[in-house]
Design a protein around this nucleic acid. Structure first.
Lengths: 206, 206
DNA sequence: TAGTAATCCTAGTAATTACTTGGATATACT
DNA sequence: AGTATATCCAAGTAATTACTAGGATTACTA
């Protein structure tokens, strides 16, 4: 299992043509991950799906893990962008409805990425090869920016470090779970309502 | 990647000698998983570490995933057994201290499995090959028995389905995260205290 | 103690897969 | 137009790895 230890793309595409193959490769990798899982994703298959030669893949990425890392990066960007858009509309809401609306928006953003998020959460190994070491070391906290963004709006007063850690962790992991592994016999909407009730108790106190 | 789709051991060991190799293989697999990660765990390496021939492994397991599944199963059994022992002492505690004590016990049980738990959580792919399909379909809820056990003692009144789902999910995922990926700059004990405060608010109401 | 079944091991094989080589083709630049 | 450079690809290779065949050894049984 000879693996490259570089993480970044070998070189950045300069011409428009190569930018297209670069993107096609990332898009193809996304598709293959969704349909075949991490273990079933081979570099040859990615290149085939993208419609380019295998060597082109290695022109831009040092190895399989690098391109998968890029796919994750792109997904994170999409989620954050979407959330920023959606969260903008929450400003006018009254305090009582804010928490639930906020949680719903996060849920929907995650839901849009469901098939990919599922593979990333359950199959892609969490290792230095895949995630840059300077990044947030917790996969669950990849979305922490997203939360800090919303948290400013939602949280009434400054929370302790421990409280903040728990809030971020709970919200992200609960909603991710709900998306990736919906509990049979439970309605997602109802779970979110229940969660927002509890979170309101949490942040506003008894 | 030819994989067997059976899950159970091919045959159960009948003589004492084979029971020993059976256990040695599982123990070896545990060690190799801890030291080399899931991807770096090969069947040959497992057999070597166990001190038996590779064919002996295939005598008792249809493939790599089957033995890994068995390792997970054994870990779950250990955790549940330990918790049952520890939880027994909680009966006399007053209501106010019960929640925190309960969370601490779960935390410690998980902490004892830290190296293995880390690999299982982050690297072992979550697939039908690894987890029996008749088992709880959520990995996080593998420990749900554990929680229901404690919950009877801790929860004051019957909770709604949604509430129960969230409580189980939150407790397990929070404590697992805390064990597997301790947040830098935060004290685990302090986080547990904070969590138990909030959980008390949730279940006892405002 | 002989026969039979269980257990084990050595030495493979076949298939997969990450990755490279060397040259062809397209693009940019002057 | 002509040259340099960027981009692409077909056809490999070398290493890994899951898994097996066939026979040797050990333990039960009568």
């Amino acid at each position: 299992m000879p693996q490259a230890f570089e993480l970044q793309a070998k070189k950045l595409p300069k011409q428009a043509r190569s930018k297209a193959t670069f993107d096609a490769l990332i898009e193809a990798c996304t598709l293959v991950l969704q349909s075949h899982g991490y273990a079933g994703t081979t570099t040859n298959h990615i290149a085939d799906t993208a419609g380019v030669g295998i060597a082109s893949l290695y022109e831009y990425f040092p190895g399989k893990d690098a391109i998968v890392a890029k796919v994750i990066e792109r997904m994170n960007e999409r989620v954050l962008t979407n959330l920023a858009k959606r969260a903008f509309n929450l400003r006018e809401l009254p305090k009582e409805e804010l928490m639930q609306a906020w949680l719903e928006q996060i849920y929907r953003c995650l839901l849009e990425e469901q098939p990919l998020l599922r593979v990333i959460s359950y199959e892609v190994p969490y290792s230095e090869q895949v995630l840059n070491s300077h990044e947030m070391p917790q996969r669950l906290l990849q979305f922490s920016e997203l939360l800090e963004y919303g948290a400013m709006e939602v949280l009434p007063q400054k929370q302790s470090k421990e409280s903040m850690y728990l809030i971020v962790n709970l919200v992200v992991s609960s909603l991710t779970q709900l998306v990736v592994n919906p509990p049979p016999g439970l309605d997602a909407q109802a779970v979110i309502e229940e969660l927002s009730k509890k979170m309101n108790q949490w942040v506003f106190g008894p």
